[in-house]
Amino acid sequence: MSAGNGTSAEQGVWVAPGRVNLIGEHTDYNDGFVLPFALPHRTSVTARLLPGPARWVVSSSFAAEPVTIGPDDLVPGRVTGWAGYVAGVLWALTDAGFTLPGAELSVGSDVPVGAGLSSSAALECAVLTALCDLAGVDLPVADRPRLAQRAENDYVGVPCGVMDQAASTLCRTGHALFLDCRSLAVEHVPFDLATAGLAMLVVDSRTPHQHVDNEYALRRSTCEQAARQLGVPALRDVDDLDAALRALPDAVTRRRVRHVVTENQRVRDTVDLLRADRLRDIGPLLTASHRSMRDDYEITVAQVDLAVDTALAAGALGARMTGGGFGGCVLALVDADRADAVREAVAGAYADRGFDAPVAFLAEAGAGAHRLR
């Protein structure tokens, strides 16, 4: 965006990060616990106010033509595709009673789409942060994740939990975000890989992160039905897993519940280790999380299983798929001097199986949404 004649209050650049979830998969919509951290990959929104009647002109580096959104489009489902996430934020803000001036929004991003790194939440949170600053919206930062989640749930129609939006908004550099998805209480837990002589290798399996045949929604509905059968508000309230499993009528539901309950405990155990400065010791919990996703929640695919198994065989301290499943990325906690060897081992295993070559990068915990300039 050119500087134009506007003041700094009328224009600027805002960014929000993608995220990886260190541990705690499919626990968020069960009112459970998660532990994400923000990536260096970010979505940016260059924005300026527009005079005249409210309208929002949205362009993107990954779309051929801009999209103009008017007040009549602020109806759930009216705008589709990538611009629907922008319209969803506009709708959620106006539905919450805020008056928004017109604006021009230009979107760019290096968050990989379809890799399970929460590119949609990064877009929502960058747009939300820009609009709040541009319009002087008095919306506390702690309240923004729920509003961004509502945009995705109720406007776009994706039944995601609140973890992605919370991570993209609230994370701090050098920390993982311990989030209670019921209360939105947060704790910034130290997560300094370099000081511990460690690295986090993120392997994009190059298998598009797709909720195959609406499997994500099916997992969620199964959990909600199980909670009703068990007489608890959500699966995070299950205290006696063995008794709960005996009370459930079918094997599939029992597997789903076992994953959620044990995954919540793995998050708590990981946080305890990080508080005690025992970062190296979280590896087995990451691996146990993956096995639970593979065997009980049944959301992994051959490429991510191969990446996990190969990373472990090559010396990783722990490895797991991250994200909603059916593709996406794998995390491997490694000694810093082993990162290249693990990366090469996974690439070689993919080549041997005829899979598309994976893309791997090192990730450190970054900052949440903020104004860049």
Rank of each mutant, 00 (worst) to 15 (best):
M1L: 15
M1K: 10
A9H: 08
Q11L: 03
V13Y: 00
V13G: 00
W14M: 02
W14E: 00
R19S: 11
N21D: 08
E25T: 04
F37I: 04
H41G: 12
H41D: 14
H41E: 14
S44Y: 12
S44Q: 15
R48I: 00
R48G: 01
L49C: 05
L50V: 04
P51C: 05
P51W: 12
A54E: 08
A54T: 07
R55P: 03
W56Q: 02
S61H: 14
I69Q: 01
G70W: 08
P71T: 07
D72N: 12
D73N: 12
V75S: 14
W82I: 13
V89M: 11
V89F: 02
L90R: 03
W91C: 02
A96C: 15
F98E: 13
T99P: 01
L100I: 07
L100D: 02
A103L: 00
S106V: 11
V111P: 00
V113H: 06
S118D: 08
S118L: 13
S120H: 05
A122C: 11
A126D: 00
A126S: 11
C132I: 03
G136E: 13
V141G: 08
V141S: 12
A148N: 06
A148C: 14
Q149M: 15
E152K: 05
V156R: 00
C160E: 00
V162W: 07
D164C: 12
S168C: 14
T169V: 15
T169E: 10
L177N: 00
L177V: 08
L177Y: 07
F178E: 04
V186N: 10
L193K: 11
T195H: 09
G197C: 05
A199I: 06
M200F: 10
V203F: 07
S205G: 05
P208E: 10
H211T: 12
H211A: 14
V212D: 13
A217M: 08
Q225A: 15
Q229E: 12
G231D: 00
G231Q: 06
D240I: 08
D250W: 05
A251D: 15
R254K: 10
R255S: 13
T262H: 13
N264R: 08
R266M: 09
D269I: 04
L273E: 02
R275F: 07
D277C: 07
L279H: 03
R280M: 11
D281V: 09
G283V: 05
P284E: 03
L285K: 03
L285M: 11
R294P: 01
E298C: 09
I299P: 01
I299Q: 01
A302I: 10
V304L: 11
V304T: 14
V304I: 10
D305M: 05
L306V: 11
A307C: 15
D309Y: 05
A314L: 12
G315E: 06
T322G: 04
T322P: 04
F326M: 06
C329E: 03
C329N: 07
A336C: 09
D340S: 15
A345E: 03
A347T: 09
A349H: 04
A349L: 07
A349Y: 03
D356W: 06
A357Q: 13
A357I: 07
A357Y: 06
P358L: 06
F361A: 11
A363F: 07
E364C: 09
R373K: 11
R373V: 10
